[in-house]
Amino acid sequence: MVTGISLEQAVALMTGGLSPLPPEALPAVQALGRTLASHVTAPMDHPPFDRSPLDGYALRAADIAGADRNHPVCLPVADTLYAGDEAKSPLLPGQAVRIMTGAMLPPGCDCVLPQEDTDRGNPVSIYTALPPCKNYVYQGEDYRAGSLLLPAGTRLDAAALGVLSSAGITEVSVCPRPKVGLLTTGDEVVEPGRPLPPGKIYGSNGALLAARLAELGIPSFCRHAADSPAAVAKAMDEMLEDCDLLITTGGVSVGDKDIFHQALPLLGAERVFWKVDLKPGTPAMFSRHGGKSILSLSGNPFAAFTTFELLARPLLAALAGEPRLLPRQRQAVLTTPYDKPSPRRRFLRGRYEEGQVALPEGHSSGQLASLVGCNCLVELPAGTPPAEAGQAVQVWLL
């Protein structure tokens, strides 16, 4: 087990050689928000026939050349076509066909005249001329059979699902959603809704990380274990049966009750690293057992949140094969100062907007209320003095 490594080294150790989980086949109607795992090609032309974009008359441009209000052209109406009708008979020279929006155009026509430019009679009087191809929607105008309809990596939103439906596609292959187990620990933790005895606290890490995973579209389930190495090892063993990634909080530092140093060997897990050179969340630990990953985070709420963003998200991105799960970074200008030096690489909560970032009050790793309304982590490099307003900083968007 290595110790005291950089954030980048930690991510490399966790994700190096890690293969994504297999793609999942889903009915398209259930795939909103999912990411395509493979290209989708068009199985057909769309539209599948030449069609009218408006209500009017299908005709030949040559037959109405020179028409205007003072010199209308009169044409017999040979047929009426509605959306869904098949145009079986070709349009003969000197004829018009009454046609509705979306209807198949008859062979032989080369334009569609809006009904507002006629008297709508039979024969129909036409009051304006048109060039060929005017108001004419060609077969395959939207996309052609065999063309790339949606590339792999497309996030399936309403428009993408509409496109799939227009092509008659009912099933898609999507990137998997890793199932995450959350194990919180601590004898001091009481479940919300129960009386709070002296010396106890209500647990927040389970709710915090489960909600964050849900925001990322990742399913999870949560358990709590007391500060007993045997109990924690048993809980981990059971939870690993039902998840692709296990995230734990608490018990990873150097105190008497930091029991993961005993629990992981009891489980038989391979410990890969312990302690990452950042603050908060330095004691983060990573292990493997049975081909699955175990990421153990600090029990302090903001420390757990920070290291989840910096360490768990790259793991989730690798398991899902989805780069969108990686945190995005931006350059910003700090609008509020931070009065402490940063001997170690430090991450603060912040509110980023239009290239500027403001810091709230309260940056202790045990404080959670000041995280409300924040949308980024602000990075201060190791060895920097107190940060001043106007200083350029790197932010990691949440």
Rank of each mutant, 00 (worst) to 15 (best):
G291L: 03
K257L: 11
R271S: 06
L319A: 13
D256W: 08
P327H: 05
A235P: 01
S287T: 03
T307F: 09
M236P: 01
T307Y: 07
D258P: 13
R313G: 07
L267N: 12
L240N: 00
R288L: 02
L326P: 03
A320F: 03
W274P: 00
V254M: 03
V272Y: 08
V272T: 06
G281W: 10
G250V: 12
A235C: 01
K257M: 11
K234N: 06
L295S: 09
A332D: 08
G281L: 04
D237Q: 10
P327G: 04
G250Q: 06
F260G: 04
T307H: 05
F260T: 12
H289N: 02
A284I: 01
E322Y: 15
P280G: 10
T249W: 00
S293F: 07
E241A: 14
A284H: 04
G268T: 08
L246S: 08
T306P: 01
S298T: 11
S287K: 00
H289D: 04
E270P: 04
P280A: 12
H261T: 09
T282M: 14
I294T: 03
P301C: 13
L246W: 07
T307G: 07
L319H: 08
K234Y: 04
G250N: 04
K279H: 11
L245D: 00
E241L: 15
F308M: 13
P283E: 01
L310I: 09
T248R: 00
G251C: 09
L315V: 15
D277T: 11
I259R: 00
L264P: 00
F308Q: 06
G250L: 03
Q262E: 15
S253G: 06
D242L: 07
D256G: 15
S296D: 07
E238M: 14
S293E: 11
A263V: 02
G268N: 07
S287C: 13
P301F: 15
I259Y: 13
Q329W: 12
A284M: 00
V252I: 13
P301V: 14
K292M: 01
L264R: 05
L267S: 11
L267A: 13
A320E: 02
H289C: 08
L319F: 10
T307N: 08
S293I: 12
L326W: 11
A231T: 05
P327R: 04
M236D: 11
D277N: 14
L264Q: 07
G250C: 03
I247E: 02
D256K: 15
A303F: 06
V252C: 10
D242E: 14
A235S: 10
D237M: 10
Q331D: 14
L325W: 07
Q262H: 14
M285K: 04
R288M: 02
T306G: 06
P323S: 15
E322K: 14
E238V: 13
M285C: 12
L297Y: 01
L297E: 12
P314K: 00
E309G: 02
P283D: 01
F305H: 12
V272P: 03
A317T: 07
L278D: 07
C243M: 03
V254A: 06
S253V: 02
A332Q: 09
D237C: 08
L325Y: 02
A332P: 02
L315M: 13
